[in-house]
Design a protein around this nucleic acid. Sequence first.
RNA 1: GCGAGAAUAGUGUAGUGGUUAUCACAGGGGCUUCCCAAGCCCUUAACCCGGGUUCGAAUCCCGGUUCUCGCACCA
Length: 485
Amino acid sequence: MGELENIMELSKRRGFFWPSFSIYGGVAGLNDYGPLGSVLKDKVYGEWKNLYASIGGIEIDTPSVTPESVLKASGHVDRFIDLATACKACKNKFKVESLLSDKGVDMVPSGVEDAWKIMKELSVKCPRCGGELGEPFEFHLMFPIDSNGERFYLRPETAQGIFVNFKLLLNFNRGKLPMIVYQQGKGYRNEISPRQGLIRQKEFNMGEVEVFLDPAVNGYFKPETKEEMYLLDRDGREHHMSLPEAVNKNIILSEDHAYFLEKTMEFAIRIGIDSKRLRFRQHRKDELAHYSRDCWDLEFLMDGSWVEITGISDRGTFDLGNHQKFSGENLAFEGENLARVIEPASGIDRMVMAILISSYNKRENGYVNLKLLKNMAPYPVAVLPLQKKDGLSEKAREIFNEIKKIEPMAYYDESGTIGRRYARQDEIGTPYCITIDYETLEREVVTVRERDSMEQIKDIPYRDLLTHRPFISNPILKGSGSVKN
RNA sequence: GCGAGAAUAGUGUAGUGGUUAUCACAGGGGCUUCCCAAGCCCUUAACCCGGGUUCGAAUCCCGGUUCUCGCACCA
């Protein structure tokens, strides 16, 4: 069974995520987060916000429903709607633009009629079977919405909500650059063939950061980490070196860009993604998005292939320049100068997958423990009576109620045998189980059992567990969170 | 989207025209000499959807949906 399959099976069974609308047959590319996945996803967002807040970032929240004018300016309307045509014989579909370019005609037809006319003039045939092609039609990579005759789209990225607010945000920031703005939210892409669970979806969670820099100041942000990283440059050369060194050797072209690679790596590690499965890969010139001058992706290795989880793009002045031109508003930060933008954009759902895959461990006896970091586990602690009899159940509930006051996500379970309950918590990544036994009845002490080592710490006065935000930072409790980075 | 295969309890599966639809695990309840999914008893729970063929369909046919693998797509 592949890594992805293991996670999908566990996720569906234990409530991390599953396909949406399944009682109606399901829809490809849409997934629900279950009770555990919702908490995990929120914790990922939480760590992400903490990281960017800690370096001075500010948050914004803008709509998904976006007027066409905005996406016209950003280039998405032209780049995200293709004219397509289908072969009448073999049913394959093709982009009209690429068919014309095969004929040596480099132009984008202005509409369906224009395209149809040109296709007839050049007598374009199906490149697969030579068959006759049908009338072209619009193929939307964005989801269009019509409201009283006005056209909107669901946003393909959250970024535009930040760019269009640049003036208001800069005013909030009291005119100062650099300015770091971040937004969490859903993005939408009409994927032709969504696959692989949370990896390619039609609707997905994004965390996007737009860093606005004064282009006259280079190296406002500098990477510091000495840690060696795996870098793959646009010419396919592998490098194993620290980020400052990569800047010195001109592999990464700007210190500011490298700094946000550093922050991205820091974030991935902080949420428990295995650093041995991570690399940065620079986009080739021909794969850069229309708005991007340079881009490094953080990629995660799963089932033998690398999947993008964050793209750190240098968008230059593309977006502000276009919005200035299309809206007529002055978006310069001083005089004529436009801010330059670095954008670390993370796929939150992919990060959740990466966490689950990094944490998944099968023991020799065949049972699974999820080695989630303590700060990520949906249930930080479970309270388990050794058995139900002899007042253990009552005592356990009493202690559980106390613990609930400081840790609302504590979990209680008294069904079946104790071993089964430990196993159940291991599988969903709960780092600690507090066991209430006969000693507790006599001396108010409990046993704490650690998930990965299965070791027990005996004779802990349970009152001591109530004095800290206990199950994430209590010094009494060691171990756990054992994804090595 | 194309081509090929697949879809049966929560999960994994058996079942080639007539079965009370198999088994395991998981879930719930109980017993138990009770600290790692032990054992025993009881129990919940499924043929993807819609048409068709047939006396009779989980099983055969058609369409849809979803999944897997290849191709294409991934701004």
